[in-house]
Write a protein that binds this DNA or RNA. Structure first.
Length: 282
DNA sequence: ACCCAGGGTGACG
DNA sequence: CGTCACCATGGG
C-alpha cells in the first residue's frame, strides 16, 4: 500500500481486500452517501469524496496531515486478507464472503457513534440516516466547500436542544435518551478510556447511558472503540445465527454466547460479514 | 389495518 | 435472574 498527495487529493494505491461500496452501505455508519462516481461522507470536521477504482482509493480533499486519519478511519492498517482467509475455510461462514468480502469496520468518533446507535434502536437504517442528517443540520456546524456539509454536533450542542426539537427531527421516544446522554458527555464523561478497557468492562460503562442496552453498546464498542470482539445481536443477526448454527431453532442464551465466543477475537468483524449477508438474503 | 425496523426501559415475578 | 407491554415514526 502506498500513499501520495496529488491535486488536493490523497491517493492510496495497492489497496487490497477493501470495498468502499459495501463498507459504507452496511449499516455501521450513517453519514456516507453514494454520489456520481463515489461516496461523500463526513468524519470529524472533514467532508470528503472517496472514489475507488480497482486497488486505488482517492480521497478529496485531503492533505498530507489527513493521511493517517483516513488510513485509521477506513481500517486500512488491519490485515483483512488474513481474516477473510480464515472465513473462506469455514464452511458455515464462507458463503458470506460473496456478499461481504471487502467490508472494513470504520473507526468512527465515539460520541457520534453513541448518539447514532441510540437512534438506531427499534428503527431501520434508512430512517436512522435521515434522523442523523437532520440532527447535524440542526445542531452541527456548516462547512463550505465543493459539497457543503454539516459536522456531527458536539455534546454541548445536543444537550442544549429541547426534547421537542429532537422529536421534530423524527427521533420519537428516543429524544430524552439522546438529550440525557449528550448532557452526561457534556458534563465531562470521557469515552476514550473505554478503548483500553477489556470489552466487558467497557460494555458495562456504556450501559449506564440512557437508551444504551446490550446491542447498542456492542455497536459502539465495535464501530468506534476498537473492540473487534463486540458482537451486536439485532433482529437480523439473531435470524442469521439461528439458521446458520442452530438449525433454525431459537437457541438458549448460553448456547448463543458460547457460539459467539467460539468465533474468536475478531468475532465482531465476522458479525459484520454475517449481518450484510443476512440483509441481502433473508 | 397490521407488521417491521441494527431495542431499551420499567414493572412484575 | 427472565419475561413482556410499551414506546414514536415511516415504509411495506
Amino acid at each position: 500500500m502506498r500513499t501520495e498527495i496529488k491535486d488536493n487529493s490523497i491517493i492510496i494505491s495497492g489497496v487490497k481486500c477493501f470495498d468502499m461500496a459495501r463498507s459504507s452501505n452496511c449499516g455501521q455508519a450513517f453519514r456516507w452517501k453514494s454520489v456520481n462516481d463515489g461516496w461523500f461522507g463526513v468524519a470529524g470536521d472533514k467532508g470528503v469524496l472517496i472514489t475507488q477504482k480497482g486497488e486505488t482509493l482517492t480521497i478529496t480533499p485531503g492533505t498530507d496531515a489527513d493521511i493517517g486519519f483516513w488510513l485509521n478511519y477506513l481500517d486500512l492498517y488491519r490485515d483483512y486478507q488474513a481474516i477473510e482467509n480464515e472465513v473462506a475455510e469455514d464452511s458455515v461462514l464462507s458463503p458470506c464472503l460473496g456478499y461481504a468480502s471487502g467490508i472494513h469496520i470504520f473507526n468512527q468518533e465515539p460520541f457520534e457513534t453513541l448518539i447514532s446507535f441510540i437512534i438506531s434502536a427499534n428503527n431501520n437504517i434508512k430512517r436512522i440516516t435521515g434522523i442523523v442528517e437532520r440532527l447535524c443540520e440542526l445542531a452541527g456546524s456548516r462547512k463550505e466547500g465543493e459539497i457543503p456539509f454539516y459536522t456531527f454536533p458536539k455534546p454541548e450542542a445536543i444537550a442544549a436542544l429541547s426534547e421537542q426539537q429532537l422529536t421534530a427531527i423524527g427521533s420519537g421516544y428516543r429524544a430524552p435518551y439522546i438529550k440525557k446522554t449528550a448532557e452526561m458527555i457534556a458534563a465531562g464523561y470521557d469515552l476514550e478510556p473505554l478503548r483500553k478497557m477489556d470489552t466487558a468492562a467497557a460494555r458495562k460503562e456504556l450501559l449506564q447511558f440512557p437508551g444504551v442496552g446490550p446491542k447498542v453498546a456492542d455497536c459502539i464498542l465495535l464501530f468506534s472503540l476498537g473492540h473487534t470482539d463486540a458482537f451486536p445481536l439485532d433482529v437480523w443477526m439473531k435470524r442469521a445465527m439461528r439458521l446458520m448454527y442452530f438449525g433454525g431453532e431459537e437457541p438458549c442464551k448460553k448456547d448463543m454466547e458460547q457460539k459467539i465466543a467460539q468465533l474468536g477475537p475478531n468475532s465482531g468483524i465476522l458479525q459484520q460479514y454475517i449481518f450484510h449477508y443476512a440483509r441481502e438474503n433473508m
